[in-house]
Simulated scan of single mutants.
Amino acid sequence: MITIYHNPRCRKSREGLAVVEASGKPFKVVKYLDNRLSKSELQQILATLSMGPMEIVRKQEAIWKSEFKGKEMSEEMILNALVEHPKLIERPIVMYNQKGVIGRPSENIADLLSD
Rank of each mutant, 00 (worst) to 15 (best):
N108T: 04
L82N: 00
C10W: 03
T3A: 10
A18V: 06
E84N: 14
F27G: 09
K25L: 15
D34K: 13
S114H: 10
V83S: 03
N108M: 01
I102G: 10
I89W: 04
M1H: 02
E76C: 01
L82K: 01
G100I: 08
R58G: 13
W64V: 10
K31A: 07
E90M: 08
M73P: 04
E21W: 02
Y96G: 00
E21L: 12
E67T: 00
T3P: 03
F68T: 08
P8T: 02
Y32H: 00
P86G: 13
G24D: 09
V57M: 11
S23I: 02
W64Q: 09
V101K: 01
E90F: 07
I45Q: 03
R58D: 11
N35Q: 14
P86S: 09
Q60R: 15
G103F: 08
Y96S: 11
A81R: 04
S50E: 15
G24A: 03
L46Y: 04
I109W: 05
G52K: 11
S66I: 05
E72A: 15
R36Q: 14
N80M: 02
L42G: 02
R9I: 12
I45G: 02
C10T: 07
K25W: 00
P105R: 13
Y32L: 04
V20Y: 01
F27W: 13
I4Y: 09
K71Y: 01
A22L: 10
S40N: 12
S106E: 15
N35M: 11
A62P: 02
L88R: 00
L37P: 03
N7F: 07
L46K: 08
S23W: 03
N97Y: 01
A62W: 01
A47V: 12
C10D: 14
L88N: 04
K59R: 11
K87S: 15
L42I: 01
V83C: 06
